[in-house]
């Protein structure tokens, strides 16, 4: 732990430590060096969220690096949650980027396996996976808490990151998911951001297990919310996104809203979810992934009653 008693001292850590219900957002870097476009997207989130996830070549499509986009946020006075996947870098590059990100003022990072490159725009590439997400979490913790590289050599000024990991309560084999979450927390995850939740009964069950196993005492769990823009999007996610559970009832509800009103219905459902998460035992906050819908975040935050964000 650092001198001030925090692991990293990031805003997100402080908000969670103070017992506030956290609210994080997400912003994908541009498919190019268009800094203005990035700034425009991230400005929608200013004051609305505690930290902004910056995706790392999401869906295996090349974009501006998450470290660079995160640094741009830091310079603009926004707090990034720097995402890193195991697909594109070996342990040398990862540790180098962690040091670089930290030196640019980045204090949160989310450790992920990453979508296989098969999904993206360079399916011909070599997949690295030198280490996996579990080992990445442990590596970032070792760098932070022991001041050592993976090879046990000393680090000259170690990077103090607030360590995040992902959990998908809906992927198969379902029975194992809670144990995988437990392992990530054991490995060193301070906070968890879940996959988008649509099946509330299943998530309630998952959280009950997490609470019963004592996991929520050792890590903050942020429930993943992605508002549906349309019934078509819901159907697409149900059918084509592996590990996504979109109940038929939700698709029906969106369709029932009628033309031109499906987006509003999607937002309404998201707000109902956030309301429930606020009361759900073990849920420490919400991670709102408004994909290419950043401008809607202020409205959702307002209507969900999570504003103003706490100043800690």
């Amino acid at each position: 732990m650092s001198e001030n008693g925090y692991k990293s001292g990031s805003n997100l850590e402080k908000v969670l430590e103070a017992g506030h219900f956290a609210f994080t957002g997400e912003c994908g870097p541009p498919k190019g060096a268009n800094v203005e476009h990035l700034k425009e997207k991230m400005e929608h989130l200013r004051g609305q969220v505690d930290a902004i996830n910056v995706t790392d070549n999401q869906t295996a499509v090349v974009r501006m690096s998450s470290a660079a986009a995160s640094a741009i946020m830091v310079q603009a006075g926004l707090e990034p949650n720097f995402q890193m996947v195991c697909r594109d870098r070996n342990r040398l590059a990862m540790q180098a980027d962690i040091l670089g990100a930290y030196s640019m003022g980045i204090r949160n990072m989310l450790c992920l396996s990453g979508d296989h490159q098969h999904f993206g725009n360079h399916p011909q590439s070599k997949n690295v996976y030198d280490i996996d997400s579990m080992q990445l979490i442990a590596m970032v913790k070792k760098m932070r808490d022991e001041g050592k590289f993976l090879n046990d050599e000393d680090i000259d000024e170690s990077p103090k990151m607030f360590i995040g990991a992902a959990a998908n309560p809906f992927a198969d084999p379902v029975e194992f998911r809670i144990y995988r979450l437990a392992s990530k927390i054991d490995a060193g995850a301070d906070f968890i951001q879940t996959q988008c939740i649509y099946n509330m009964p299943r998530f309630r069950e998952f959280m009950k297990k997490a609470v019963d196993m004592g996991l929520t005492e050792n890590a903050y769990i942020l429930a993943g919310v992605t508002p549906m823009k349309s019934a078509r999007m819901a159907k697409y996610m149900a059918k084509f996104v592996p590990g996504m559970d979109v109940p038929e009832a939700l698709i029906k509800r969106l369709e029932g809203a009628g033309k031109g009103k499906q987006a509003e219905e999607g937002i309404r459902f998201a707000i109902e979810q956030i309301d429930e998460f606020k009361e759900m035992a073990g849920v420490a906050g919400v991670h709102l992934m408004a994909i290419e819908w950043e401008h809607k975040v202020p409205e959702i935050a307002e209507r969900a009653g999570v504003l103003p964000r706490p100043q800690v």
């Binding site: 697909r87 396996s113 990453g114 997949n127 992927a171 592996p242 590990g243």
Partner: peptide, 13 residues
């Protein structure tokens, strides 16, 4: 596909 030593990833269905 990812040679994970701690699987399965979130894409298993």
């Amino acid at each position: 596909s990812k040679s994970l030593l701690h699987g399965p990833c979130g894409g298993s269905a």
